[in-house]
Amino acid sequence: MTIENEYAKLWISEGILYFIYKPQTILQLDTAKKIVMDRLKLQNEISYPVLCDLRMVKDSEKIARDYLAREGSILTKAVAFLVEPPFSEATIYLYLRTSKPVIPTQIFTTKTEALSFLEKYKIK
C-alpha cells in the first residue's frame, strides 16, 4: 500500500517505512499534521523504522519541526534522515539540536548508509 498526498509519498517495504517529500515542499504546521495523519494510517498501529528523504524540502517552520519531533515520533522505532548538503543538512542538524527527538535519529547523505542504520530496528 502506498499513500501519496500533495507533500509526500509513503510506503512500507521490507520492514522499513519510506517517506519521500515532494519537490519544493514547505513544511508548515498544517503540512506536518497531514503528513503524520497519513503516516499513522499507513502504519495501522505498527511501529517501523523510517527513512525520511528531505532532499526536496524547500523550507520549514520551527513550529512544524517541533510538531514532527513530538507527534512525528509516534510509532517510529528510529529515523534516518536522507539529506543533500549543505542546505538540508544544516537545517536538520539545527532540528536535532533544538527539537531533540525522543527516538534514535541520524542524518545521512546516502541511502545505503541510512538503510544500514535502520536495519537493526526492523521487526524481526
Score class of each variant (00 low, 15 high):
1 M>I: 15
1 M>R: 13
3 I>A: 08
6 E>V: 01
7 Y>E: 02
10 L>F: 03
10 L>Q: 05
14 E>V: 02
15 G>T: 00
19 F>N: 02
19 F>G: 03
19 F>H: 05
20 I>H: 05
20 I>D: 03
20 I>T: 10
22 K>E: 08
24 Q>P: 06
24 Q>M: 08
26 I>R: 03
26 I>S: 03
28 Q>T: 14
31 T>W: 04
33 K>A: 00
36 V>A: 09
37 M>R: 09
42 L>V: 09
43 Q>M: 11
43 Q>D: 08
43 Q>K: 10
48 Y>R: 10
48 Y>T: 11
52 C>P: 09
55 R>A: 13
55 R>W: 11
57 V>G: 07
59 D>C: 10
59 D>R: 13
61 E>W: 13
66 D>E: 14
69 A>Q: 03
71 E>C: 04
75 L>S: 05
75 L>P: 07
76 T>G: 06
81 F>K: 02
81 F>W: 07
82 L>M: 05
83 V>S: 06
84 E>K: 15
85 P>L: 05
85 P>W: 05
87 F>M: 13
87 F>K: 11
88 S>I: 10
97 R>M: 01
97 R>T: 00
98 T>S: 06
101 P>N: 03
105 T>G: 04
106 Q>V: 00
108 F>G: 01
111 K>Y: 02
112 T>C: 05
113 E>Y: 06
124 K>W: 06
